[in-house]
């Protein structure tokens, strides 16, 4: 088999977890891992959507303990490496030790795109455990190419094996992606990857553009299952790559089978770009706020779109889901006062 031109990391079991409110069960995990592994996917990421330790009031409680699911994933894979994501401030270095024991081979340490220095403790721990370690900068539309380089260099200095940036709000145009990848590829000694979201319907195009600029790791999720309007769909990225003559090393038809026969049946809603999903991308708001803001809008009888726009104005970052309630209460108060007048 020819060497793939980029490495495909599938995050159906991590980012996809947002879209099903963290309700994966072991049977679903095993079926998805086996399907992706069989299709030739090299890395499969699994964790609570907000990373290890994410199960909480703020981000939603996992139905099944993520470590049990991770153990199942490690047992079910033959060739694919199992990866976990961890956000310092939410997960602990101890979590990395636990998942290493379970058989996890890669840890992605994720911070907001201006806060790379909180990853030092965790990147070093992951490296010392012998795991492949990726520094992962979220909400990258909120930092300039030069700013991202500065943060990425910190992660590189802590020992990261590769650097990713995530368009967590699905807010980037292709040009935004190109400038950032180009800057990183030129400045770093280690490979670069991109994690795209589809709020502006740009995820696949942005991923291909990232590849053209020199990114050698790309993320996808089966059927696009993921936070907000969803991720770059793994099977479409593979199909489009084929069309471009980019070698992926994965079986496109087998990936389509996984999406159609395993993932779609467990989706509570199809991954479409509806108004709320589009607003997230348009206002540059963290994708995983989608379902939480929907719930708050219903609970306090306010507009979800208004909540999301206000969150965008407040420049909240990933992890501040509690601010959704704060904004909903502010809006409800404002409406009540307006009615009194």
């Amino acid at each position: 088999m020819t060497t793939p031109d980029f490495r495909l990391i599938d995050s159906t079991l991590r980012d996809g977890s947002h879209a099903i409110s963290h309700q994966y069960n072991p049977e679903e995990v095993v079926a998805i891992v086996k399907g992706l592994d069989h299709a030739g996917v090299q890395v499969i990421e699994i964790a609570h959507g907000d990373g290890l330790g994410g199960s909480s009031f703020n981000y939603g409680f996992s139905k099944v303990d993520e470590k049990e699911l991770i153990a199942q994933a490690c047992a079910a894979t033959t060739n694919a490496k199992i990866a976990c994501l961890l956000l310092p401030g939410i997960g602990l270095a101890d979590d990395l030790r636990d998942v290493k024991e379970l058989g996890v081979g890669m840890a992605r340490i994720a911070t907001h795109c201006t806060e790379a220095d909180i990853s030092e403790q965790h990147i070093k721990t992951s490296k010392s455990l012998g795991m492949e370690t990726i520094g992962f900068m979220m909400m990258a539309h909120m930092n300039s190419p030069e700013g991202l380089v500065e943060e990425a260099l910190k992660m590189q200095s802590y020992g990261a094996d590769a650097i990713y940036f995530a368009d967590s709000a699905g807010a980037m145009t292709t040009e935004d992606v190109r400038r950032r990848v180009d800057a990183l590829v030129n400045a770093l000694d280690i490979p670069v990857g991109v994690h795209a979201h589809n709020n502006l319907s740009m995820a696949v195009a942005n991923s291909i553009a990232a590849y053209e600029e020199g990114a050698t790791n790309l993320d996808g999720t089966s059927a696009g299952l993921g936070a907000g309007a969803g991720n770059c769909p793994t099977e479409i990225l593979a199909a489009v790559s084929d069309k471009y003559g980019i070698t992926t090393g994965v079986n496109v038809l087998a990936l389509m089978d996984v999406a159609e026969e395993i993932v779609r049946p467990l989706m509570p809603r199809q991954q479409v770009i509806d108004r709320a999903g589009l607003i997230l991308g348009y206002a540059g708001v963290y994708g995983s706020f989608l379902l939480h803001s929907q719930k708050a809008a219903e609970r306090y009888n306010v507009s979800q779109a208004e909540i999301l726009l206000e969150l965008g104005r407040r420049k909240v970052v990933g992890g501040q889901e509690d601010m959704i309630i704060d904004v909903a209460l502010d809006l409800a108060k404002k409406h009540a006062e307006a009615e009194k007048k």
Binding site: S56, G89, I90, V316, V317, G319, D322
Partner: peptide, 17 residues
């Protein structure tokens, strides 16, 4: 317990929930 850093300018007040 969860900790989040927010880089917004002007800087945000400390928030706790």
């Amino acid at each position: 317990a969860i900790m989040v850093l927010n880089p917004a300018e002007p800087p945000i007040m400390m928030r706790n929930t």
